[in-house]
């Protein structure tokens, strides 16, 4: 990076950004922190409650269940989408007229409003009317998303894979095409087989993009709300109620400000924590 000059007037440049983001971040967070340590019995009367809400949340079975579901979901998602995305990127042509076509079509799911994604899959999975539902039932599976938690999970996971794998594909592809031909030529001359080429050339060169991909997919799947909510509403029962869905239920549905606030902070901290770990790993490579 070029030498940067020391200049505290630079703060003038960042003020618009700071104001806009702080307005949206600091004020609401302060409100949340406020609520998290207070109790109300209505009529805008608040009493100090200390860390009570936090204890309640951390001990509540409901929270544990949501967290467990969330972790399971995120784990499955990462385990499928990352390898799948890399695999698809590896098989894509590097040059030629089909490349833009492929990229445009693959990027399409990424630009569909999330509720439409949920609605689309809702229709798609209906047992008698949707393509997926009809076909699966014809084959012999007893497939009904509104009744079977397994079917619901299957559909939610499949939907997310459909929705977001392309992000991994595009990132991995960007990393792959940046590898100069000479590396492949040298590997040929060195007598390296396909797997050796993948292991020693392609994978290392994709390391940075893959870290971004994993980080983004972890964050976004951990915070997921709209698509599963529109698809299953969190059900059947609460079998697909992930953390965000549960939180919104408590906050906007039940207006339990205290517990909602405490849960929000815990949620935020978990997300931040894991993301920070990834960020440190990522920026360790950025030191040029």
């Amino acid at each position: 990076m070029a030498i940067r000059t020391e200049n505290n007037k630079a703060w003038l440049f960042v003020i618009p950004v700071v104001l806009l983001v702080a307005f949206n971040a600091v004020v609401p967070l302060m409100t949340v922190v406020n609520y998290s340590v207070q109790e109300t019995f209505g009529d805008n009367l608040f009493f100090w409650h200390g860390l009570g809400w936090f204890e309640d949340v951390l001990r509540s079975e409901r929270f544990h269940a949501s967290l467990a579901r969330q972790l399971l979901f995120t784990g499955i998602i990462l385990a499928i989408e990352i390898p799948l995305g890399v695999m698809i990127a590896l098989t894509m042509p590097k040059k030629g007229p089909w490349v833009p076509v492929c990229l445009v079509l693959m990027a399409l799911p990424l630009l569909i409003p999330w509720n439409v994604v949920g609605a689309m899959w809702n229709i798609f999975a209906l047992p008698e009317i949707g393509f997926l539902g009809y076909v699966l039932n014809e084959i012999g599976f007893d497939y009904n998303m509104t009744q079977s938690p397994l079917a619901a999970w299957f559909t939610v996971v499949l939907m997310d894979v459909w929705h977001w794998t392309s992000l991994v594909v595009l990132l991995a592809y960007a990393g792959l095409i940046s590898i100069p031909d000479a590396y492949y030529q040298a590997a040929k001359i060195d007598g390296a087989g396909r797997f050796a080429v993948f292991r020693h050339i392609q994978l290392p060169k994709m390391k940075q993009v893959l870290t971004i991909a994993i980080l983004l997919r972890f964050m976004d799947s951990f915070m997921i709300y709209t698509e599963p909510f529109v698809l299953t509403g969190g059900g059947p029962g609460n079998s697909t109620t992930f953390l965000s869905i549960d939180l919104v239920k408590i906050a906007l549905g039940q207006f339990d400000l205290g517990p909602a606030a405490a849960m929000s902070l815990i949620y935020f901290l978990i997300t931040l924590g894991v993301s920070w770990v990834f960020y440190t790993i990522m920026t360790r490579h950025d030191v040029r």
């Binding site: 949206n24 965000s244 929000s264």
Partner: peptide
Amino acid sequence: TNRMAPPAVFALPF
């Protein structure tokens, strides 16, 4: 870090 903030956390405060 704001990119890492769950929107659900901000729903009610917003």
